[in-house]
Computed example of a mutant assay.
Amino acid sequence: MRKVFLTLISTALLYSCGENKPVEQLTLSGLNKKNFETEVKEKKTDLYVLTNDSGMEVCITNFGGRIVSVMVPDKDGNMKDVVLGFDSIQDYVNIPSDFGAAIGRYANRIGQGTFELDGVKYDLPKNNFGHTLHGGPNGFQYVVFDANQLDDKVLELTYTAKDGEEGFPGNLTCKVTYILGQDNAIRMKYEAETDKPTIVNMTNHSYFNLDGDANVKNSDWLLTINGDEYTPVDSTFMTTGEILKVENTDMDFRTPTAVGARIDNYAFEQLKNGNGYDHNWVLNTKGDITKLAAKLESSKTGIVLDVYTTEPGIQVYTGNFLDGTVKGKKGIVYQQRAAVCLETQKYPDTPNKKDWPSATLRPGEKYQSETIFKFSVNK
């Protein structure tokens, strides 16, 4: 009888006072799942929730394979949402952004929107200062992946990009697997196969704000990058083909350094060209995922993000083009430099720089890439 009574009480709590309507069920981060249950381009979208025994929560939508929220504890045990994003699919559709997206078919820039492979020249749509950025204007961040949630810790997303889609050759079958570990690590595994020679370079484009407060800029967060070299860019954000040493420059983050310590030193040409940091670092890890690639820390919350990857490079982007025109989750306006992106990758424009790590994928081969975002706390 007691069990029946408690069940009735629980059911009653789902209804608002005086109305026969269910109260909305929200995620720990405050997202309403119903705002993600719709159709885009005749495919169903949804919000998928991963949780672990530590209380961490990761919300992902299959629209663009986007991480929508990441709830982690701070040094006082309070849960913080540490990524930027939107409250609904409609905002993701209507407001162009890369927030949290699984980027493809080629992350970062391809110079002049062209590349040659096996003697064939391919022309791509240009969407960034005369170049192709993040797979073009209709890259993977705007497609609907097929979703299969295996359990409360694993989500598989699959998508087949057609031959010629955004100008790229080959029917490319992709899979992105998100795995939430008990150690508060988000493991992302990328796989792809093709029926024609093509290029592939996938990443995740989460905008991290480790204060859990998008009103706070990234200036005081400590950044460490395990890289002795970087690839400089010109005024159109395109890599020049050089690989330069970070030593004695404002690009040196080999020891923990505040993001904002030198970011406005536009007398240094690279910061002027990037409008801040928007550069690829050559990692010392050489594909060894057991070695730390980068670290981001907030002294205010104590939240630490460690990045590990099989990729040779990492793009650090400091939210330079956030300009206060976009309202994100909970109506918060995203101001310039309210986040830091840590995009593991092949180097930008690799298909046009033959000496750089290859992004070519051929029939019979499998593209495999893995990145880990591991959260912890400094108390």
Rank of each mutant, 00 (worst) to 15 (best):
G241T: 06
W281I: 00
Q336N: 13
N209P: 10
Q336V: 04
K295H: 02
N265D: 12
D349L: 07
K272T: 00
A261R: 12
T239D: 04
I225W: 05
L223C: 02
G241M: 06
H279D: 07
V282P: 01
S299H: 04
T257R: 12
L283F: 08
I243R: 13
W221H: 15
L292N: 09
G331E: 13
Q345E: 15
D323I: 14
T203M: 08
Y266W: 10
M238W: 02
T231F: 11
L271P: 01
H205T: 11
K291S: 12
M238S: 08
G331M: 13
K300V: 09
N248M: 02
N265Q: 10
N280Y: 04
G328A: 13
L296H: 08
L271T: 05
N218H: 03
K245V: 00
L296G: 08
M238I: 15
D252L: 00
G313C: 10
Q336G: 11
T231N: 06
N226V: 01
D228S: 14
E311R: 11
K300Y: 02
P256G: 04
T239L: 04
N215R: 13
K327N: 13
A267S: 14
T224M: 01
V246P: 04
T255K: 15
S206K: 05
D264W: 00
A293G: 10
V233F: 02
L322A: 14
M238L: 15
G212L: 08
Q345T: 11
Q315S: 07
E229K: 15
F321H: 11
N273L: 02
L292T: 09
K295V: 00
T203Y: 12
T309I: 03
Y317E: 05
I225K: 12
V216R: 15
Q345H: 14
N273W: 05
S206L: 06
T285I: 14
I303E: 03
R337F: 00
